[in-house]
Nucleic acid binder design. Structure first.
Lengths: 227, 227
DNA sequence: CGGCGTTTTGAGATATCTCAATGGGAGTGG
DNA sequence: CCACTCCCATTGAGATATCTCAAAACGCCG
């Protein structure tokens, strides 16, 4: 998601750059942290957009639903990511925790006010959204052009890149198959079949009831992903 | 600074957003205008990102290609749109005119320098990219969840909304079927079949060799699009 | 141990793709 | 002005990846 460089929000890393520590940044440290349990919503489409949230722990899915219930996850937000930014007074997306998580709650109005007087902050927001746009475009290419196996392989690679530091060579899937399916524009069954196919080929191993994936051959996975 | 991945950002309607005229905007008027004929590239993936372009006339497709030649169009840029923004020194997308077009060439370095000292400009960039992100997400939902007919119907509706002022009730398709197909993640044949199906149902009319679409029943088209 | 939510596996249905042929319009050269 | 060609769009028929529906297996928690 918005891989907002933490210097947007953490007093420590920004301090050396700017002349003063902004009001916004000072208050970050004090901002309330909210616990959200698995499947709980952080916000929903149509809610007043009063706050912006930074993920502190866990994973939050950002999604849209069609009138008939079909759901498209647009991104998974990981610790450090900012969610809820936008230009409209209401949320146009929903955010739901895929596992027990923690989010820091920030005032949207304050962030926007700060950005008006702080070109550095505004520029960081701009660059962060640019990054998010780039990620969304990559996903778009997957949905438009890649086969099921390619999408799943690429998803695992992206996940392992993000989780590299924490998890080591094995990736923990904190989300359900249905979440992965709704991200990749597939059905649960197709996701499952793709995973077992990758396992059968020896490219990955599944453990802990399918919630942990070990990547045995990243190079081959990359080739399979067509990345 | 942020190690931000760069992308070419298509920002919609940069100019109309703010009241003040910045140095950047004043100098826009003097910038060189370049003619690009149909199918000519404005820039390609991997090119040095020296310039940013504003569409003056025509339509430019912004796309990515996979190693095996599959192509995904990420957006069509219309007059007023900015393309080529980003944070990396090289373009990560390609831009190709779908019809004879004109683009105004602006210095990327200058725009970025201006933004650093002009919070207003930085904020405009941020808002523009946010809008572009929203549009990309909408397309993502289409590719992930909608059927061929739904995608085509929605595409026509979006197009008519954009072209409303110029074209009246009929929409001129300035791009080929293959461009539409590569935007919607379909094949040319499926796009063609979807269009004829809509025509058979009486929802649209096709004229001028399929390059002009008249929307007979926008409400029904909306229902078909599931929008 | 039992029940529940989730994942996996299976078999058949189907939307979309692929391959192939036809048709149409615009431009070119005779 | 007509034929020719090229490029593109349409249509058709068969192939196939993915979906749908259904059942079984798994793991977790009470």
């Amino acid at each position: 998601m918005l891989a907002v460089d933490s210097s947007i929000i953490t007093t420590r890393s920004l301090a050396p750059i700017g002349p003063a520590v902004s009001k916004f940044e000072r208050s970050m440290g004090q901002a309330a942290v909210r616990r959200v349990v698995s499947k709980e919503h952080v916000f929903s489409e149509g809610d007043q957009r009063r706050q912006v949230f930074r993920i502190e722990e866990g994973v939050v899915s950002i999604y849209k639903t069609l009138s008939d219930g079909r759901r498209q996850i647009v991104d998974f937000a990981y610790p450090g990511d900012l969610i809820g930014l936008g230009t409209l007074p209401e949320h146009v997306l929903s955010a739901q925790a895929t596992c027990d998580s923690k989010v820091r709650c920030l005032s949207a109005a304050m962030l926007e006010r700060e950005a008006e007087s702080d070109p550095e902050l505004a520029l960081k927001l701009y660059k962060s959204v640019s990054q998010e746009l780039a990620a969304t475009r990559d996903l778009l290419v997957s949905l438009g052009q890649r086969s099921a196996i390619e999408r799943v392989a690429l998803f695992l690679l992206n996940l392992s890149r993000k989780a590299a530091a924490q998890d080591g060579p094995a990736v923990h899937l904190t989300m359900l198959r249905s979440d992965i399916a709704d991200l990749l524009g597939l059905t649960i069954e197709t996701v499952s079949r793709s995973l077992t196919k990758l396992r059968t080929m020896g490219v990955i191993d599944l453990a802990q009831g399918g919630t942990v994936v070990k990547l045995n051959d990243v190079a081959r996975l990359s080739r399979l992903a067509n990345a």
